[in-house]
């Protein structure tokens, strides 16, 4: 016990000393930037990012600041999980729907679904683009499930449904866990 208290005292002394040395030369260190899950949201996502009206939306990103920038949605829907806490929310905007899921009490982007051809991906694909356009923009590194072409990057998937050589559905999906 005695030994422990000594260790503690020395620890405290050490911390005290170094604390005094702390020159404020780096005031902008992002030390206060602790959010719930400890991750740093300031980093640009390494996954697919959707952009509309100058607002960038990445998967698994906290949704509140995005909604603030996008403004009120045309329609809003929320679905409770059966018997589990956490709401799945759906915001409908012109051209796309934004889906969220709840993780550690924070609503995060779970997917973005294109509704019409008024929106396009950053790489220029929109509904009714051709399969060739998709392949040209995104390459051959996809996984195909029936008519669904799935590209994966970082924590996101970008899925194109191709019917008769035409894109009929585009969805960004967050990879969770």
């Amino acid at each position: 016990m005695k030994k422990i208290s000594i260790i503690l005292i020395i620890l405290i002394m050490l911390t005290a000393c170094s604390g005094g040395n702390n020159t404020p030369s780096t005031p902008n260190e992002p030390v206060d930037n602790l959010n719930e899950n400890g991750s740093d949201d300031n980093l640009v996502s390494d996954g697919f990012v959707f952009e509309t009206n100058g607002v960038e939306i990445a998967m698994n990103q906290e949704v509140a600041p995005i909604i603030e920038k996008l403004g009120d949605s045309k329609e809003y829907f929320e679905a409770e999980h059966c018997a589990l806490p956490g709401l799945e929310k759906t915001y409908t905007y012109n051209g796309f729907e934004l889906y969220t899921y709840e993780k550690n009490g924070v609503d995060s982007v779970s997917s973005i679904l294109f509704l019409d051809d008024s929106v396009k991906t950053k790489e220029g694909i929109y509904l009714y683009s051709s399969l060739d356009d998709v392949l040209e923009a995104y390459g051959d590194d996809y996984e195909q499930k029936l008519d669904l072409y799935i590209y994966e990057r970082g924590d996101s998937q970008l899925c194109f449904l191709i019917e008769d050589g035409e894109v009929t559905s585009i969805e960004y999906i967050a990879i969770t866990e």
């Binding site: 005290a16 040395n21 702390n22 020159t23 030390v31 602790l34 400890g38």
Partner: peptide, 20 residues
Amino acid sequence: SMFTNFNVSDLFNGSLLNLG
């Protein structure tokens, strides 16, 4: 950073409970 950026307050402001 242990020498340049050591804030004792970091240890007592509840951040330790954010480590999981």
